[in-house]
Amino acid sequence: MPATPSAHARSWPPRSPISTASKAFEEDDDAHGAARDYANEFRIFIEARISDLFDRPAYAQPRKLALGELLDELKRQSRTAEGLSGAAFDALLAEPALRSGSTFRDLLNRVSITRTRAR
């Protein structure tokens, strides 16, 4: 018997914002606006995935944490929180591009500031 979708089932859009931005960037990798949009959507995606790892619901947090703050909090909690340790977390936290002061992390922070001001 086929499953009946519940009233709470999500209907995902056919293309996520990151997929759309990625496609636009791939079509013209020399377009600065497309590159900024892709970097911004990537940052938003990563921030959302890392936020999902924490027990505190988003509405309980005092404010939306930025990528750097989320990574720093993940690093802090990975020392003591059950479920936030292991090889996958060690690899993520050891990734040079995600370390504080890395060019990549600084670029994502600049994109975030630029996109916020533009809106």
Rank of each mutant, 00 (worst) to 15 (best):
A7N: 12
H8D: 14
H8R: 15
R10F: 09
R10N: 14
R10A: 13
S11E: 15
S11W: 14
W12S: 12
W12D: 12
W12K: 12
P14G: 08
R15C: 02
R15Q: 11
R15D: 03
S16M: 03
S16H: 01
S16L: 03
S16F: 01
P17Y: 00
I18C: 03
S19K: 07
S19P: 02
S19R: 12
S19N: 09
S19L: 09
T20N: 08
T20D: 05
A21W: 00
A21S: 04
A21Y: 00
A21D: 00
S22L: 11
F25K: 02
F25Y: 07
E26Y: 03
E26N: 11
E26A: 15
E26R: 14
E27Y: 03
E27N: 12
E27K: 12
D28T: 05
D28A: 10
D28S: 09
D30S: 08
A31H: 15
A31T: 11
A31F: 13
A31R: 10
A31Y: 12
H32V: 10
A34I: 00
A34W: 01
A34C: 04
A35P: 04
A35L: 10
A35V: 02
R36L: 13
R36Y: 08
D37P: 02
D37A: 13
D37C: 04
D37E: 08
Y38F: 11
Y38T: 02
Y38M: 13
Y38R: 12
A39P: 01
N40C: 11
E41C: 05
E41R: 13
E41S: 07
E41Y: 01
F42L: 07
R43K: 03
I44N: 02
I44E: 01
F45Y: 07
F45L: 07
I46A: 13
I46K: 04
I46P: 01
A48N: 10
A48G: 06
R49F: 00
R49H: 06
I50R: 01
D52W: 06
L53Y: 02
F54E: 06
D55R: 15
D55Y: 12
D55L: 14
D55A: 14
R56E: 15
P57D: 05
P57V: 00
P57C: 01
A58K: 14
Y59G: 05
A60G: 07
A60P: 02
A60D: 13
Q61V: 06
P62C: 07
P62L: 09
R63A: 09
R63H: 08
A66W: 10
A66M: 10
A66D: 14
L67D: 05
L67E: 07
G68W: 02
L70I: 00
L70R: 07
L70N: 04
D72G: 14
D72T: 12
D72C: 11
D72I: 03
E73W: 11
E73D: 14
E73C: 10
L74S: 02
K75R: 15
K75P: 04
K75C: 11
K75V: 05
R76W: 02
Q77F: 07
Q77R: 15
Q77G: 05
R79E: 09
R79V: 08
